[in-house]
Design a binder for these strands. Structure first.
Lengths: 210, 210, 210, 210
DNA sequence: GATGAATGAGCCTTCATTCAT
DNA sequence: GATGAATGAAGGCTCATTCAT
């Protein structure tokens, strides 16, 4: 058996063979993430993933030893991707804490509404997932949370924010990740407008009253 | 076939037979709601419901024509139950809009965290439910939303709140229904403290800045 | 789920329903035992059993909760049947220990060669069975062994036999159960002749030399 | 395709290439025999064999055209190995027929209990093997049987043994090959003691009564 | 010569649903 | 009104085998 899924490896694959394998793994993960997003964890079947890739279920097992492993890798990849992107935005230290937090919120919104709607699931639905994934997704959420939280802490330190950090963070995440449930448009302009409005409203959770 | 699912009917059952049937329906719905809450939509099986009621699967089909119908009725009942309770709280017009909204939030939190954790699912997870339920649960959520929204509108009208109503409502629901994901304790005292803190924080979404 | 396999129950089933169920269970066990005999444990598939009974695999699960349960019940039933029959023969205390042992051997031979060739498997092949069954079949073999052993002990006590009991018993069983491997005829006469010859030879393992 | 399975060839491989190939074949057969012994025929998978050899399944197909061929070669090799060893013991014509037979039995026991437990399977379990192997293993068993039988015949000829040759041979093999089912120790001393006891008891099957 | 990739067939198991009694 | 029986469809997983590189 050759189940050696290279997941989210930063290193460049060496051989042509390895590169091809990596590409396939990525394809599979993408398809899996799509299905995961559309059908949810329980509605996701290996058959459907295989179908979309024009493969057999058996082939999937060539790359991942189990459904569980595939889903886990999915989460890992998706979360890493989103966390990286957010970290980039967070790295830009221009502006007030409010402005920076606002940028983070908007970025996250664009991601979960348009770029990676799959992610909304991961943040929102772990309640009825098998324990294995809940653990994993909890860890990933924690990592994700830290990006936002560090900005919040700066705001608190500078007096710009005045808030029960813990509670506000939870509310922030809850509100953000709920957006895909009620917002449907895929038009860039609509999304940007929505993101701005949501960010503006959510900033209230933190801002010290003048 | 006599599949006449009496669902949350307000009318008083007439005959003894009808009354008995109605009771059975209620029993089934209760059991179904429990299973739905514990296992989630996809983990819910008719077998388990039947087992808990000491019935056979086939008998369930005497009262509901399909799993879908059973689940729908379930949602109906649960939502009605919760909406009624909230409406009661909303009916108490004492205090400012903030105080009333606060009470609503706290009530909803107690319900989804302790009394009817099933509901959290309905509000949070319709994304991966079959289309049928999504439609239905959307309607129920709208009804539910109106309870909160009417209070918010009063606050806006009186100038106590100053906010993009639509956006703020969504954020409010998102934050509230996310609580079961991060809050676990079942102790009354813990829940009340949490509810107060969350409500306080969320009110910021609405309050006009002094 | 109604998986309540009544196995080897001595009591007469009460209701007509129960009787019919019992009959079906017996049918399934018979078919399963046949397949078990022909294909061996690993080659035995629920599909084949179902096919022979003109049933679906799913139906088998109506009567047995798993393949394991079915196989276990199979062993139980078969072993019980054979043990009962042997015990009957053993109960006939006429003749010397040699004669009685001879009758037991012949009976066992007729059973495993003609009546229940499945049994040979159980005695002979537990080596590569899953642990669960090995435990069970070991217990059943022990029970089976006792029938023979009690006669042997009488022979030893009376001085008719003179032997290392433990070793001889093992050799006896090994030789007996090996017969289906080399003997093929199903003709009554052939079997009886073979049984007599084998028994005569095996008695030598025990007999005190004059 | 160059699938030329060199099996137990007595000829010395000519070229360096051929020698290397032969070595590989031997390695594979050894590993396969191990797996066959540990997991049984049905539990034996090419994957596991390849894993142990740090090869891929596909490579196995370079040396053997099918699983069937591999298993057959396995049997061949194992049987040849054991038969050669026994033939060696049989060649030692010192002592009475009883003594010689005794030595053969003890040797066979040591082999199947400690050295090549795989063999026990081959002798004991052909009943549920595919027809192909049964034929083959029958032939091998015949060859194996002849080693014992020739000694037995000498004993009969000399009057030392007095027995239905055919029946006694079968019983002998059955009893011997059953030993691994009930005997577990791997300690040399235990094995030798057991072997002696078993041999002593089995000789009774043949010895003319004084 | 060696291997990674791919697959078809098969296996055990679950489940919503139908139907005769 | 209730139930046991039966099932088709699907799901996750394994495995011997083929093939292009």
């Amino acid at each position: 058996m050759t189940t050696r899924p290279v997941v989210a490896s930063a290193e460049v694959p060496v051989s042509r063979v390895a590169r091809r394998r990596d590409q396939k793994v990525q394809d599979i993960l993408t398809a899996a993430a799509d299905v995961l997003a559309e059908r949810g964890f329980h509605g996701m079947s290996l058959d459907e993933i295989a179908d979309r890739l024009d493969l057999t279920k058996a082939t999937l097992y060539h790359y991942f030893p189990s459904k569980e492993a595939l889903v886990s890798a999915c989460l890992e990849v998706l979360a890493t991707r989103i966390n990286d992107r957010l970290a980039e935005v967070a790295a830009d230290s221009a502006g007030t804490a409010s402005e920076r937090l606002s940028r983070l919120i908007a970025t996250q919104l664009v991601i979960i509404v348009r770029d990676q709607p799959q992610m909304a699931r991961m943040f929102l639905q772990p309640m009825d997932w098998p324990e294995t994934y809940r653990q994993r997704s909890k860890a990933l959420r924690r990592q994700h949370d830290m990006v936002f939280r560090s900005v919040v802490r700066e705001g608190i330190a500078s007096g710009e924010f005045d808030v029960d950090e813990q509670i506000a963070m939870h509310n922030l995440h809850g509100a953000i990740n709920y957006v895909p449930v009620w917002f449907r448009s895929k038009r860039k302009k609509d999304i940007e407008a929505m993101a701005a409005a949501v960010a503006a409203n959510l900033l209230r959770l933190f801002r010290a009253s003048s």
